[in-house]
Design a protein around this nucleic acid. Structure first.
Length: 606
RNA sequence: GGGGACGUAGUUCAGUUGGUUAGAACGCUGCCCUGUCACGGCAGAGGCCGCGGGUUCGAGUCCCGUCGUCCCCGCCA
């Protein structure tokens, strides 16, 4: 097919904006041919661009030459159409399209480009193609309305972040991508230096040190929508490169930061078109969430767990083969009283796989609790029903450690196993009853994380958050004597079972920072070698400061009601960190390597 | 690093106990059609059953390995 030049053609509208008020106007649309319906002497084309779809009609009686050309087009051809907007007769209105009350009667047709038949249909109705194909042909996948909508939402939210943070007095300040290895826990992506052979830049896992330096520099309130890089294994909610809303401020209390961030995410929920969440967000200590939910990022849409050891008489737990030395947790599985014996046993097996013991037996019928436990231990079950707040139609699961399990101090393992059963039951069964409504945004703060966690492999204490996190002022005297009991001024923002971000009040005194480094098993020499510049900076009048970083991709994902980060990132990588469109990463030429002073080790194939 | 699922036409899938020529729908090609809107009708083309090996008279189907995608554990403040 011969193609037309663009010439002086100018688009007058996009394909989503014409309404019956435009009837009679002469318009020029440009876009992709979405689908066509050819009736012989009458042809309907749907023209698509970012704005939407508009139906264009070609009538042989009116313009035979233009009609004949339209019959030659196929999917994804890029065309320009000049025509007149016609109001459709009532029986011809298409209520599914925003532009369904009009159509454009074509008078001129310009074929700007042809197109190969795409490997999959560009729409949201056809069964979704394997993700591998979608990623290989990402430019086509991104044309789909759903992806267009997701990327548009991402833009809208990024804009809202900038407007809000600006209104709150924050400056957006950039920090380098090529920097030095940072103290965070993940592996770094490295960039070799040509000018300084044998040395490497590290891509930032976060701009942590730079934003603290900016506070020392007196910028007071900083934010940045910034790319971060971590070379770890990926998941549906983890990518090699991801975007954070990074925030730091001087002279804050923790509550100052909570307030700013609650205002921000509330605005984002609103921008995405949902009902605003309740404020202030509830606060739970780390100990609270671990005991009540068995996880540090609880989904509040599902009921909490209750500790019910006291509901049973002495000796009962032994008979039920539960350890009386460990917590016995009970939780209700809403509206799942009708689960089959097989389904309930599946939940019990799920607990067994996690070295826990579950009894999923109590069902609340119209007359009260049913099941063998309710018959054998009526008083205990009555108390459990009360403790869990179970209602008619619910199922109650009991989860604890099996009799004879070893007892450890500071150990949430029973809670964690029970929490996993709670979540599994909720996702597998309660979700059917609408309990995990994706438009119900239940934010919370998790506070008072332990400062340290014991690293069994290295036999030392590691910083749970990062080594710049300030301990509680009243726990300072335990830094050396009882590190496990020191609480950090750290906090996570959690939404519906997803960790949106974490932050802390930082250490602003050089003497405290040195103590923390020592408590982490770092000698003064090592600390000086790795963070000398930062320790120096701390000595020149560092204000108290603190901040947080939120995962922007995760926020967009939840607000777009997607379940994979890949659906809100234009060009994501696979689980093996490969970009299927560009095939990155690739080997490089010997010349490039020589310039960098790099030789590759021979990898041994087994 | 470990566990699991999947891999058959361009796409989404079916494929019986291992048995003749591997099917369907959508898409694609050609013809017909003046009110469709996931248009319709008729005809047609299209397959390295991911790849390699093995078992077998015979493998899409069974076994081993390998590659790829996805999910989970570990890991990731």
């Amino acid at each position: 097919m011969t193609l037309d030049f663009v010439g002086n053609l100018r688009r007058t509208h996009d394909c989503g904006e014409l309404r019956k008020q435009n009837a009679g106007q002469s318009v020029l649309l440009m876009g992709w041919l979405d689908r066509s319906r050819d009736h012989g002497s009458l042809i309907f084309l749907e023209l698509r661009d970012r704005g939407g779809l508009t139906q264009v009609v070609f009538n042989r009686d009116r313009n035979a030459a233009v009609h004949a050309r339209a019959a030659e087009l196929s999917r994804e051809f890029v065309v320009a159409v000049r025509g007149t907007v016609l109001e459709r007769t009532p029986e011809n209105v298409n209520p599914k399209l925003p532009t369904g009350e009009i159509e454009v009667a074509a008078e001129e047709l310009f074929v700007l480009n042809d197109a190969k038949t795409p490997p999959f249909t560009i729409d949201d109705e056809t069964a979704l193609t394997a993700e591998e194909t979608r990623l290989r042909f990402r430019y086509l996948d991104l044309r789909r309305p759903r992806m267009q909508r997701n990327i548009a939402l991402r833009h809208k939210l990024a804009l809202a972040v900038r407007q809000y943070m600006n209104a709150q007095g924050f400056y957006e300040i950039e920090t380098p991508f090529m920097t030095r290895s940072t103290p965070e826990g993940a592996r770094d992506y490295l960039v070799p230096s040509r000018v300084n052979q044998g040395s490497f830049y590290a891509l930032p896992q976060s701009p942590q040190i730079f934003k603290q330096i900016l506070m020392i520099s007196g910028f007071d309130k900083y934010f940045q929508i910034v790319r971060c890089f971590r070379d770890e294994d990926f998941r549906a909610d983890r990518q090699a490169e991801f975007t954070q809303i990074d925030v730091e401020m001087s002279f804050p209390q923790r509550e100052t930061i909570y307030g700013v961030m609650e205002g921000l995410v509330t605005k984002l929920v609103h921008e995405a078109g949902y009902a605003e969440p309740h404020r202030p967000f509830p606060h739970f200590s780390y100990d609270d969430v671990m005991r009540r939910y068995g996880i540090d990022k609880p989904d509040l849409r599902l009921p909490a767990m209750a500790t019910v050891n006291d509901c049973f008489a002495a000796g009962d737990l032994d008979k039920l083969k539960f350890s009386a030395e460990h917590a016995l947790l009970a939780f209700r599985v809403p509206k799942c009283g009708d689960l089959s014996r097989k389904e309930r046993e599946e939940l019990q097996a799920f607990a067994t796989e996690r070295n826990a013991r579950a009894l999923v037996d109590i069902r609340i019928g119209a007359e009260g609790p049913e099941g063998s436990l309710a018959k054998s231990y009526p008083d205990a079950v009555k108390n459990i029903v009360e403790a869990t707040g179970a209602e008619s139609g619910d199922l109650i699961a009991l989860c604890g450690a099996p009799a004879g399990a070893a007892v450890k101090r500071h150990d949430y393992s029973t809670h964690v196993a029970a929490g996993a059963v709670r979540l599994h039951a909720g996702q597998k069964y309660s979700a059917k009853h609408g309990l995990l409504n994706p438009e119900d945004f239940r934010f919370l703060w998790v506070t008072d994380f332990p400062m340290y966690e014991w690293n069994e492999e290295e036999k030392r204490w590691d910083a749970m958050h990062h080594p710049f996190t300030s301990p509680h002022e009243q726990d300072m005297d335990k830094l050396e004597s009882d590190p496990g009991a020191v609480r950090a001024l750290a906090y996570d923002m959690v939404l519906n079972g997803t960790e949106l971000g974490s932050g802390s009040i930082r250490i602003h005194r050089q003497d405290v920072q040195a103590r923390i480094f020592r408590s982490l098993g770092m000698t003064d020499e090592e600390a000086r070698q790795r963070f000398g510049f930062f320790l120096d900076a701390l000595q020149y009048g560092t204000p108290p400061h603190g901040g947080i970083a939120l995962g922007f991709d995760r926020i967009v994902m939840l607000l777009a009601q997607e379940t994979s980060l890949r659906d809100v990132i234009p060009f994501p990588k696979t689980a093996r960190a490969v970009d299927l469109m560009t095939d990155a990463p690739t080997p490089v030429s010997e010349t490039q390597l020589r310039d960098l002073g790099i030789g590759l080790r021979k990898t041994e194939k087994k």
